[in-house]
Simulated scan of single mutants.
Amino acid sequence: MKMFVEVPAIYLYSGHVDFRKSINGLLLIIEQDMAHSPFDEALFVFCNRHRDKVKALYWDKTGFCLWYKRLEQDFFRWPAASQKTLQLTEEQWYWLLAGVDLAKMRLHQPLNCRIAS
Rank of each mutant, 00 (worst) to 15 (best):
D18I: 02
D52L: 04
W93L: 04
L71Q: 12
A81V: 00
E90Y: 06
E72N: 12
L86T: 08
E91R: 13
I29D: 00
V100C: 05
L57W: 05
C113Q: 15
D40K: 09
L28W: 01
Q92R: 10
E91T: 15
S117E: 14
D101Q: 01
A35I: 12
A103T: 14
G63M: 11
K53S: 03
F76G: 07
N112Y: 13
F76E: 14
W93N: 10
Q73Y: 08
C65G: 04
L96Q: 00
K53C: 02
P110D: 13
E41D: 15
I10M: 03
L28P: 03
I29R: 04
Y94F: 14
A42V: 14
Q109G: 12
N112P: 07
V45L: 13
E41G: 11
K2C: 12
Q109V: 12
H108S: 12
K84F: 02
K84C: 07
F64M: 02
Q73A: 09
Y58R: 07
L26Q: 03
V17T: 03
E72W: 03
D18W: 01
L66T: 02
W67V: 11
V45T: 11
V5C: 05
S117R: 15
V7T: 08
D74N: 13
M105D: 06
S37Q: 07
E31C: 00
D74W: 08
L71R: 15
G99N: 15
D60S: 05
D33I: 10
L28S: 07
N48A: 07
K69P: 03
T89F: 04
Q92N: 14
D74G: 11
A103I: 12
R70Y: 05
I10L: 02
N24S: 08
D40Y: 03
T62W: 02
K53T: 00
R114T: 15
L86Y: 05
F44W: 00
Q83Y: 03
Q87H: 12
F75H: 13
Y11D: 05
L12K: 09
Y68W: 01
